[in-house]
Design a protein around this nucleic acid. Structure first.
Lengths: 195, 195
DNA sequence: CACTATTTGTACCGAGCGGTAGAGTGGGGA
DNA sequence: TCCCCACTCTACCGCTCGGTACAAATAGTG
């Protein structure tokens, strides 16, 4: 693993996070290469030599984003009580949706590109796979639960929780505040699976 | 209102619906003028003479889509019981999210362009305003309700219902079936505002 | 010190974008 | 009948897109 030749002047994972932020803010098709290279602090040939193409860059950047999101979800779902696990999942997700100084509002998995031109359809699929992945983790947790009210289909419950969270992502993209999202969660929890 | 000169060879509202379908399927930025004119069956100069610009075309097409959506929502919200009104709202929305032969899956208000390049930011705003409009109608209905459980904030409940519906739109865009969406609604209703 | 391997920077490519000019077309009005 | 005028159509505009060729720069290796 010796480093022969001129060394790279940037950190690969750091620039991926910068790229993710641009995709997050403008969507895949709205993120131009100029905007990307500008934010990443590198120029096009470096980008292409390292990542191959815009789509591959997106896949890598989204991969990092998604891994972080899944690990947050897993931490929430590790709670012993199912109701508490769902609440933690929803609240930690909502917190991640609020814009802070170092990332935009909303969720890259949703606003990255729900609908794309035909030649970028793969991007929508990557995002959908990521969301399905998170929902599967949730469904897995709920399927193993022993404290669900009888008659509740754990897969349907997972879909419900995931849909609510994705809806919050849509709201957050439009500027909803953290307090507003948590109030919506309050409503859901107040009556959902009463403890 | 005399018609002097060569008459138009297309119906303005009909081609707006065709345009809406393209925006719906590919998003604002993914919908090229070639795809639009192809689907609308007219050519560029006709499009520009009639609608002015791509953004104005989008605004007009979305306006029609949104009016229909609001009228469906209003019909649901006219039910006397609040729980029934919410259920009808969610179920009729879900039905509109399922792809049928004459329109794509999902919701134009969501997949039209949650995130856009800076020069198209107006599109995201138009969509967000449309969604906020629907939520306001819902909140209005709930604020007037006399049969809500005590302590439930009607605005938060409206946001919750709207978020769930938008989450279903995200699921539908990824191919969720009508049955899956309705199962999620079953979960929500089973425990929400018990009658 | 060359020599080699790799990255960087500039400057560019063809293609497709949104948008338009201008000639041709066809139906109402006098 | 013949003009008028809005509409249609082909062909094109400048621009930006995603992507790349090529030379200068910078490190390890002998």
């Amino acid at each position: 693993m010796s480093t022969i030749g001129r060394p790279r002047a940037f950190d690969e994972e750091a620039v991926l996070d910068r790229a993710a932020e641009v995709f997050w803010r403008h969507g895949y098709e709205g993120a131009s290469l100029s905007a990307l290279t500008g934010a990443m602090g590198i120029n096009r040939p470096s980008l292409y030599a390292t990542f191959g193409s815009k789509q591959e860059l997106f896949a890598r950047a989204f991969g990092r984003y998604h891994d972080r999101q899944v690990s947050v979800a897993r931490a929430a779902l590790d709670r012993p009580g199912t109701r508490e696990a769902i609440e933690a999942f929803l609240r930690s997700s909502a917190d991640g949706l609020t814009a802070v100084d170092d990332h935009p509002a909303g969720c890259l998995s949703v606003q990255g590109g729900l609908a794309c031109s035909p030649e970028n359809a793969h991007v929508s699929e990557v995002l959908a796979t990521g969301r399905a992945d998170t929902e599967a983790a949730l469904a897995d947790r709920l399927t193993r639960a022993t404290d669900l009210p009888s008659g509740v289909d754990p897969r349907a419950l997972a879909r419900f929780v995931m849909a609510l969270s994705e809806g919050h992502a849509v709201h957050a993209a439009a500027g909803a505040t953290r307090a507003e999202l948590h109030a919506s969660i309050d409503v859901a929890l107040r009556v959902l699976i009463p403890a």
